[in-house]
Amino acid sequence: MTNILTKKNKPAGAFVQWLMKSKAVRKVGLGLMGVVAFLLLWQMLSSTGVLKLPAPDKVVTDTKELILNPFYTGEGNDVGLGWKIFASLRRVAVGFSIAAIVGVSLGMMIGASPLLYDAFDPILQVLRPVPPLAWLPLSLAAIKDNESAAMFVIFITSIWPIVLNTIVGVQQIPNDYRNVARVLHLSKLDYFLHILVPATIPYVFTGLRIGIGLSWLAIVAAEMLIGGVGIGFFIWDGWNSSLISEIIIGIVYVGVVGLILDRLVALAGRLLTKGAENG
C-alpha cells in the first residue's frame, strides 16, 4: 500500500498522501488494516482446518440472531445479548460505585494521617494481590445471595487500587500548597475542597481506571460461577452447549465494553482535572 502511495504521478496519490499525513487518519486506517489482516488469517486457518474453531464468516452467520436482536426478551434467562451486558454492567456499577466512595474516603483518611497509614499499610499490602475470584467463595459463604456476592467481589477487587492511589495522591500534595493553606488559615472544609481534593483527583482517577478494569475482569469470571443473566454466564453457557460461535461473539463484546468503560473513566478524569496539569 505504501508503494502505491509514494507514486506521485496519480492525482489521487496526492490526496491519499495528504490523508496519511493526518495522524488520526493514519492511526484508524492502519488499525482497520490490522483487524482485516487478523480476520483473514483466522479465516484461512479455520477453512484449512489448522484451527479447530469456526471461521469469522461462520461466527457471523451462527450468531446473526444474537447480533441483530440485542434487546430480545424471552422466558427466564432467555434474553438478548444487550440485556445480558446490562445485567453485568449493573453489578459492576453497584460494586464499583461503592468501592469508589469507600475507597476514596478511606484513601484520603489514611493518606492524611501518618498514624493510620502505618496501621493500615500492612493490611493493604496483603489483601491487594489477592485474585478477584479468591473472594467469591468467601462472599458466597458470608452473604448467601448470588447477586450480592458478585457485587461484593467487584467491590473488593476494585477498592485496593482506588485506596492506594488516593493515599499516594494525598501524600504527594506539595508542601507549598500546604504552606499557602497554613498562612491563609484555611478552614478544614476549605482545605479539603480547594486543595486536598483538586490536588488528589489525578491520582484518584488513576486508581479508578485500574479499578474499573479489574471489575470488568472479575464480573465475567464471577458470573461463570454463579450463573443467572450476564455476559459471563453467556460465554460459559456457550461452552456447555458447544456453541463456539457464541463464545467468540461474547468475548468480542466483553472486550469492547471493557475498552469503553476504561475510556469513559479516563474522560471523566480529564474533564475534572482540567487546568490542574503542569501547575
Binding site: 500548597y177 499557602v180 497554613r182 498562612v183 483538586p198 496539569e277 503542569n278 501547575g279
Partner: peptide, 19 residues
C-alpha cells in the same frame, strides 16, 4: 504559627494550578 497578617510570597509562586 503562620498567619495572614504575615503573608508570604514564595519563590516558586505556590499558586494552585486548578484555580
Amino acid at each position: 504559627e503562620p498567619a495572614p497578617d504575615r503573608m508570604v510570597v514564595f519563590q516558586n509562586y505556590s499558586l494552585l494550578p486548578w484555580k
